[in-house]
Computed example of a mutant assay.
Amino acid sequence: MSSPTFHPIGIPGQPWGPAEKAAWRAQQTRRRSYADDVLSVIERLRARFDVLEYGQLDYAPDVYPLLALRSRDWHDDRPIVLVSGGVHGYETSGVHGALAFLESRADAYAGRVNLLVAPCVSPWAYERIHRWNPLAVDPNRSFRPDSPAAESAALIELVAPWRGRVRVHVDLHETTDSDESEFRPALAARDGKRHEPGEIPDGFYVVGDSERPQLAFQQAVIAAVAEVTHIAPADRDGAIIGSPMVAPGVILYPVRELGLCAGITDAPFTTTTEVYPDSPRATPEQCNAAQVAAVAAAIDFALAH
């Protein structure tokens, strides 16, 4: 896939300042509704789960409540499972997969685990089908102290009381063709760098923590998702998106060093899913089902080990 060398905003080689970021934000338009797509589903689930408002994003003229759902029968002696979706708002199946898991599979774990699910961490970006928040900040590089992203800071604060007790964290993502055609060129332009074209893998893969790789756990997630959709092969260099494939469909990142959502707890079992929604071999329903299968497999593995 060919990609533009330079982004239309800014001067090549010079990082964006306030004017360029304002110009970028002015181009972003609402293309779908957080209230209709997400909040309405949470309302349906309110009969079965406790709903927590863990923050509010004030991006005038828009205000977004940040909501998480928690097991109603929460008991301190049970393992905690954290599921996060929509950290990158444009990654649709992350949001809808998290909600679908609650609707279709969560009851199977009642009385066995405590569930804490934040289905749409970045609602402004969800509505605009974008990777960044309105300040041109990537929330999934911002899970660190004094975070520059309000979305990330709010989730860190929500999870903080249980950080050391979370056993499983599944962070639901997608890798899309627009990563290469739109978002990576924009990132290079924002940072005053040259965009180097890359390759989008065709299929599902996971990103483990290089500090705590847990390869058997990652492979259990891959095996479950393979029943739903195809797994990404390595490229000619034995890599996926530039990282060596350490097992079929598995790569590793230093998640805390990079400020990724997957590093916000001390969970021994943590993975970032990457669905490929642009494949001609995958439907939106399959993408959501892949996320559901990944969450269930992660919990099953943790309970068995």
Score class of each variant (00 low, 15 high):
49 F>D: 05
66 L>A: 05
120 C>Q: 09
131 R>E: 00
143 F>N: 11
86 G>Y: 00
82 L>E: 04
87 V>S: 07
90 Y>T: 03
147 S>E: 10
42 I>A: 12
55 G>F: 11
116 L>N: 02
148 P>I: 08
99 L>D: 03
74 W>I: 01
130 H>C: 12
38 V>W: 08
146 D>Q: 15
115 L>K: 02
133 N>P: 11
55 G>Y: 08
142 S>E: 07
96 H>S: 15
112 R>I: 13
132 W>T: 13
149 A>F: 06
77 D>L: 09
109 Y>K: 04
148 P>L: 11
70 R>S: 08
130 H>W: 14
79 P>Q: 12
93 S>K: 03
98 A>Y: 03
117 V>D: 02
83 V>L: 08
54 Y>R: 03
73 D>W: 10
125 A>P: 11
56 Q>L: 13
135 L>S: 13
73 D>T: 14
54 Y>T: 03
56 Q>H: 12
102 L>G: 01
54 Y>E: 06
99 L>P: 01
141 R>P: 00
143 F>V: 12
68 A>D: 01
70 R>Q: 13
79 P>Y: 13
69 L>I: 03
42 I>H: 11
115 L>Q: 02
79 P>M: 13
65 P>R: 09
140 N>V: 10
71 S>K: 06
115 L>A: 02
125 A>K: 05
109 Y>R: 04
83 V>C: 02
148 P>V: 08
57 L>T: 06
51 V>A: 06
124 W>R: 00
46 R>G: 14
78 R>T: 07
111 G>A: 12
76 D>K: 12
120 C>P: 09
74 W>T: 02
57 L>G: 05
115 L>V: 05
132 W>K: 10
64 Y>E: 03
